[in-house]
């Protein structure tokens, strides 16, 4: 297996506060990885660094072992094949559900291409496929703003799927979902893994358990422990800072 993403000795501070402190992390292609950690552990900043939203002060972030991710911006990282789902569901509220998916489809993103773009039959089919997968095919003509919170979560996951990225960064997908939906999300993410690499940031331990994957524990911007959920749950430091508070 080859390495999809590697972070090596990454540091980033805000006004003297070290959000990321000598963080090193490797994720392999097709892997499903859960990242847990208390508030302020640096999870979101880590995602920001991977997607080019934030530049690290020092350290190396490599994509497919070759591309330097510290030099790309958000759009650049998306074009490389990194998809990101925000903690707070963010969809285009004044567009219809269908258009949200259509705008996310893998396609030429240049200004001229979009100006003269016409939807192909192939794209139509792909849209329907994604909508079915996230169970929104009945709502395709509705405005995204009119969806419930859970539906928006699903829509955003659908947008991510439509993007067909190599790596999915998923920030707390289970927030605001019912138990059944949470389980379905876990199932979906497990299904995607394999063809895609998936990194999930999550608080909900039930959800992490359902993902049944390798777990990385972050604390104060640094990797505290890594391994199976049972393995890290047994780690005394982890219990001290996170589980056993």
């Amino acid at each position: 297996m080859s390495i999809q993403l590697s972070l090596d000795g990454v540091n980033r501070s805000f006004d003297g506060f070290k959000a990321i402190n000598d963080l090193s992390l490797t994720v392999e292609k097709g892997e499903l990885r859960a990242i847990i950690g208390p508030n302020g552990a640096g999870k979101t900043t880590m995602m920001d660094i991977i997607t080019g939203k934030t530049r690290p002060d020092e350290g190396e972030v490599l994509w497919n072992q070759t591309v330097d991710l510290t030099r790309t911006d958000e759009a650049g990282s998306a074009r490389l094949g990194i998809g990101r789902k925000f903690q707070k569901p963010t969809v285009f509220e004044t567009h219809t559900v269908e258009d949200n998916i259509a705008l996310s489809l893998k396609d030429d993103r240049s200004v001229w291409a979009t100006l003269f773009d016409r939807k192909t039959a192939e794209q139509e089919a792909r849209i329907s496929e994604v909508l079915e997968l996230v169970k929104l095919d009945g709502d395709r003509a509705r405005l995204a703003a009119d969806l419930s919170h859970g539906q928006k979560q699903w829509l955003e996951i659908g947008m991510l799927l439509a993007q067909d990225p190599e790596l999915l960064l998923v920030d707390e997908p289970a927030a605001g979902m019912t138990d059944a939906e949470t389980m379905r999300t876990a199932e979906l993410l497990r299904d995607i893994a394999g063809q895609h690499t998936v990194i999930v940031v999550e608080h909900d331990m039930e959800f992490v358990r359902a993902l049944d994957c390798r777990v990385t524990v972050l604390h104060q911007g640094h990797v505290l422990a890594e391994g199976s959920l049972d393995h890290v749950s047994a780690n005394e430091q982890v219990i001290e800072v996170y589980l056993g508070r």
Binding site: T51, K53, D73, E74, A75, A78, R79, G83, R84, F86, T90, V91, F92, E93, T94, H95, L103, S104, R109, V111, T114, M159, Q163
Partner: peptide, 16 residues
């Protein structure tokens, strides 16, 4: 319109 409503989301979809 995407830019107007959610600029960051638009960027993360790969639009410059």
């Amino acid at each position: 319109v995407c830019i107007r409503d959610a600029e960051d989301r638009t960027r993360f979809l790969g639009y410059r």
